[in-house]
Design a protein around this nucleic acid. Sequence first.
DNA 1: TAGATTGTTAATCGATTAACAATC
DNA 2: TAGATTGTTAATCGATTAACAATC
Lengths: 241, 241
Amino acid sequence: MNKILTYSTDFVIIITKFRKNKQKWVSFMARQISMAVIRRLPKYHRYLKDLLEKDVNRISSKELSKIIGFTASQIRQDLNNFGGFGQQGYGYNVEELHREISKILGLTEEYNTVIIGAGNLGQAIANYAGFKSSGFKIKALFDINPRMIGLRIRDLEILDIETIQEYIKENDVKIAVICTPKEKAQKIASDIVEVGIKGIWNFAPIDLELPEEVIVENVHLTESLFTLSYLLNEQKLKDEE
Amino acid sequence: MNKILTYSTDFVIIITKFRKNKQKWVSFMARQISMAVIRRLPKYHRYLKDLLEKDVNRISSKELSKIIGFTASQIRQDLNNFGGFGQQGYGYNVEELHREISKILGLTEEYNTVIIGAGNLGQAIANYAGFKSSGFKIKALFDINPRMIGLRIRDLEILDIETIQEYIKENDVKIAVICTPKEKAQKIASDIVEVGIKGIWNFAPIDLELPEEVIVENVHLTESLFTLSYLLNEQKLKDEE
DNA sequence: TAGATTGTTAATCGATTAACAATC
DNA sequence: TAGATTGTTAATCGATTAACAATC
């Protein structure tokens, strides 16, 4: 009897905590969302934004299927992982759905961010417009090359890599973009995680070894290029038949 | 009887054609290799190169599993899609396997390549070292901005986008890297495919609509960044529990 | 109301993992 | 030879697709 009382008290606490926030509730229930679904979310976000800009205000899974290329069934399954955003007989409200997916993607959260490596790629990313629709705020670049230190990319200063740990602590930086050569990447990653970095957007061609609670998203350009190479070769063999 | 004769003649021709090239034979048999497998190949290639550089000359699927993070079973399955590269009781010869995967990836094929869009990203890619281990030969950059036309990035000239169709035809260009704003990407892609482009490495945040025989490999940076954002948010909710 | 379309369960398909005979 | 490890078949797991009752 005592046990049942305890359980139901816990249950009331949980229900109260999440009543006003369905997304948190769903996350708490934590039927782990598969990476396959997660990686489709940004694409939904992009297509919904396009629709918004065309002043479309409602869309059915069937219509969306036609433009985005997933099956209608998959679209409904995907969205239902996060809540019932649609309405029978009507479909989905484009603006609402876009807003909800923004929230699910965490685009409303802000993160102080630094770019490590101020070479061509680091500079390209510093100027990258894609950041503006996210909560990542670029604060500075870091480089090892004395000739670069002190220079500015737009309104961002290039700082000495030697000072990065201090900077991260003092400026509450949570995210880093790694654009260094692969030889430097692991050491730097370990160093910055030590002082509070929670997530890394990694462009170095290496698989970083870090504590599992640190989120690493890789952009392995070589792997993408080699995949292109494979597919070209395959197509070529097909043509020769 | 006639039919059987015909069949067996065909068979002899096929066998003869492919006797010396197992990879072509396997491709011809065309049990379609899944994208999941294809996208793992560059990672095998990278880890095998690392092993080569460390003068390791043999490795078992079990050992490789430990460093690359796929199961030993998956490694053996993956490799066997392309041929029996291993030896019972011994494992795989690192140098041979690396060479074979290079061939499978088509890294030995050469492709004249152009970069379209000479902004930060286009320049970063023009300077990108990852190309050197592939067969993609960058010949020129193209831009719409008159102030950029005529400038040089390393030893590459920036040419007028207006002249691109002509250039592609005259220089036997087969591959293009698209680094333009998304508004320009579709039009340019259609234009260049018209004059012989076979493959596109697309950095514009749009899904290009092109004939199905054209190979498109997308690098959608925003989608990668938004995935990072999602995972950070998820981790945050976990921490708050 | 009738038609449309969702949310959700069940069926199918494909990819990963396990197991083991073959063999170096 | 005995031990190790592959290549490959079978079992499992997970993701996608189909179907349909609920309901706007």
